[in-house]
Amino acid sequence: MPHATRHRIFGMAFAKVYPLYVQKAERKNRTKDEVDQVIRWLTGYSQAQLERQIGKGADFETFFAEAPAMHPNTSLIKGVVCGVRVEEVEDPLMRKIRYLDKLVDELAKGKAMEKVLRR
Rank of each mutant, 00 (worst) to 15 (best):
S46E: 09
D36V: 13
R118K: 15
F60R: 03
R98G: 06
V86A: 02
F60K: 01
A67C: 06
A112E: 11
G110F: 14
Y18M: 04
G55R: 15
L100F: 00
K24W: 01
I97P: 00
D101Q: 07
A69F: 02
A67F: 06
V84Q: 12
R40K: 15
G44I: 02
P19M: 07
A108Y: 07
D33T: 12
T74E: 09
L117M: 11
A25Y: 00
K102V: 04
T5P: 07
F10R: 05
A4T: 14
R27Y: 08
Y99L: 01
M1N: 12
V89N: 06
A4I: 13
S75Q: 15
G110V: 10
S75H: 14
K32N: 09
Q53I: 01
A58D: 10
Y18C: 04
E114I: 15
R95L: 01
A58Q: 10
E90L: 13
M94S: 08
V86P: 02
P92D: 01
L50G: 01
R27E: 10
V81E: 13
E90C: 05
K16H: 13
E34F: 05
W41L: 06
E34W: 03
G44T: 02
Y18V: 01
F64G: 07
Y99P: 03
K96A: 02
G79P: 08
G83T: 04
Q53Y: 01
E66S: 08
V38T: 09
R118M: 15
E26K: 12
E114R: 15
K109I: 08
K24P: 00
G57R: 14
M12I: 12
R27C: 07
A65D: 12
V38R: 04
V81Q: 05
Y99F: 10
K28P: 00
E66N: 12
Y18T: 02
G57D: 11
E88N: 10
H3C: 08
L103G: 03
M94P: 01
E26F: 04
Q53G: 02
Q47E: 12
G11R: 11
A13C: 09
L100W: 00
A13V: 09
A69I: 02
A15E: 05
R30F: 04
E34N: 06
N73T: 09
A15K: 12
A15N: 10
Y21Q: 03
D105T: 09
V35N: 03
K115Y: 07
V17M: 01
D36T: 09
E26A: 11
L93V: 03
N29F: 13
L117N: 10
V116F: 05
M1F: 11
P72Y: 05
E90A: 14
A13M: 14
E88G: 01
Y45Q: 07
G55S: 15
K109M: 14
T5K: 14
L93K: 02
G83W: 07
Q47V: 13
